[in-house]
Design a protein around this nucleic acid. Structure first.
Lengths: 257, 257
DNA sequence: GATCATATTTGCCGTGGATCAAGGCGCGGG
DNA sequence: CCCGCGCCTTGATCCACGGCAAATATGATC
């Protein structure tokens, strides 16, 4: 099952909490916002910092903008940077020797890339739509971390929370049928976006059907059929750039098995 | 698919690195070993401690022995303790509302239970065979942690490593067929046990076939059939208490897809 | 050693989701 | 406006794995 690379990503729909950056060709540097007024501060590791620490870390970070389909880090390579995602959506994936892909998660604003603080990259991270991120030199970040116990504690809590989330996903992959997988995907995504934006009526699906399939351990056809079926059952409405949930209760029940 | 609870576990085969404890009925207190001479010290979080810190933590820990099928912690409940596993094997599992079970991992000596440091237990932990563990009061442990940055750093590294391992397992669950799942299970278990004991000729399978199935997202019949097939192909030999790998190379290739 | 309980294996058959194939849709470029 | 290229959908068929049931192995108890 060789990967066919998608070529024209959607640039719409995704969550965007920060300013725009117009051009492709490597990440574009953004003028520095004050961390103080960062919209994802309380969602990210930075919530552990007080105002003075915040201005310290501001000097360590480089706010960047990644265009759709650009790569933040590539599995198997090494990297000396870590990221704090502040806008857009990032696809995190691993590839099997035979080319099959498993998407292990979608990073949204507030998420941190590089929790393991090691130089070896174990999963790829690609911008799905326009992505804003604060980039840090890993060494500088580690040093800063060593000097700020509350931040270290926050990193630990975040990593543990990611671990729990990974376990949730194991349950989905190992024990749910196609309906259950797609239903819980929609519900989970809704809940996640609700923590960031507060508009939940419409769920933008910035990722492709193939991405969803690779996330849920299904094929693109099964994802498409299942969504069509849900639409036929009046559980959702499929729009050009996402879905609207009509019967969240029923979806939640479906998602339980 | 209601769970039928196994009733008579094997008490053999599993890894045992610490002393024996004869009786069931709640965990049995063990005389305290010196942490200094603990056989899993360098595998566990304790590797971050120097001799003086080691004797400090020794006073916080209670070495216990759990009999097969006893429960260290139960999903959905709360707990004020955390564990360092020093002997035996522990089954970590989650249960879906409809009773289906997903085993999210098998803890072996050196592994830590309670990485999230929260009071809510998100997965059950049950002794598969006789298990030895050092138990800590969570509050006391957290306080100790706050005073020992190197230990905190070690916890973080361990949590991140668990996260990576969880991602590996997502790939297995989402993208591998039955042969690939069973083959990588055997190879991974072998590699893991090799880090602890150094005898690798024979892999003891302390867990039941049902456990393996619930770990790999398969049914017990498929696990059994696959193992039989591997045996017929001379890749393994099935013994009463485990398997012996005959053709590790071929298994490794099978495990790649 | 006989009995019993549970775990495991094996055969048979059904099905959910994969695979193969054929359009349809949306969008950017000429 | 038309064309071409991906993405998405839908239908038809296949097959790996699940579900069921019966046979067998293992180990515990008396």
């Amino acid at each position: 099952m060789p990967e066919k690379l998608a070529s024209k990503p959607r640039e719409d729909g995704g969550i965007q909490l920060q300013s725009h950056c117009p051009l492709p060709g490597g990440p574009l540097a953004l003028e520095h916002h004050r961390c103080e007024s960062c919209n994802v501060r309380m969602l990210s590791i930075c919530s552990a910092l007080d105002m003075s620490e915040l201005s310290e870390i501001e000097h360590l970070s480089r706010p960047l903008c990644y265009s759709p389909r650009s790569v933040l880090q590539r599995e198997g390579e090494t990297s000396d940077t870590v990221f704090n995602i502040t806008g857009g959506m990032v696809r995190l994936s691993r590839t099997l020797p035979d080319g099959q892909r498993q998407i292990i998660g979608f990073a949204v604003p507030g998420d941190f890339l590089g929790l393991d603080l090691g130089e070896n990259i174990v999963f790829s991270a690609e911008a799905i739509n326009q992505v804003n991120a604060c980039r840090f030199q890993r060494n500088a970040f580690v040093d800063f971390l060593a000097a700020k116990p509350t931040l270290m504690r926050r990193m630990q809590a975040l990593t543990a929370s990611e671990l729990t989330h990974a376990q949730d996903h194991m349950v989905i992959l190992g024990r749910k049928n196609a309906d259950g997988k797609v239903a819980s995907f929609l519900i989970n995504l809704r809940d996640r976006l609700a923590r960031i934006e507060h508009v939940v009526a419409h769920i933008p699906l910035a990722m492709t059907r193939q991405d969803i399939a690779d996330y849920l351990g299904l094929t693109i056809e099964t994802v498409s059929r299942t969504l069509s079926k849900f639409a036929k059952q009046k559980l959702i409405v499929i729009t050009p750039d996402g879905v609207r949930l009509l019967n969240e209760e029923k979806l939640r029940i479906l998602g339980e098995l």
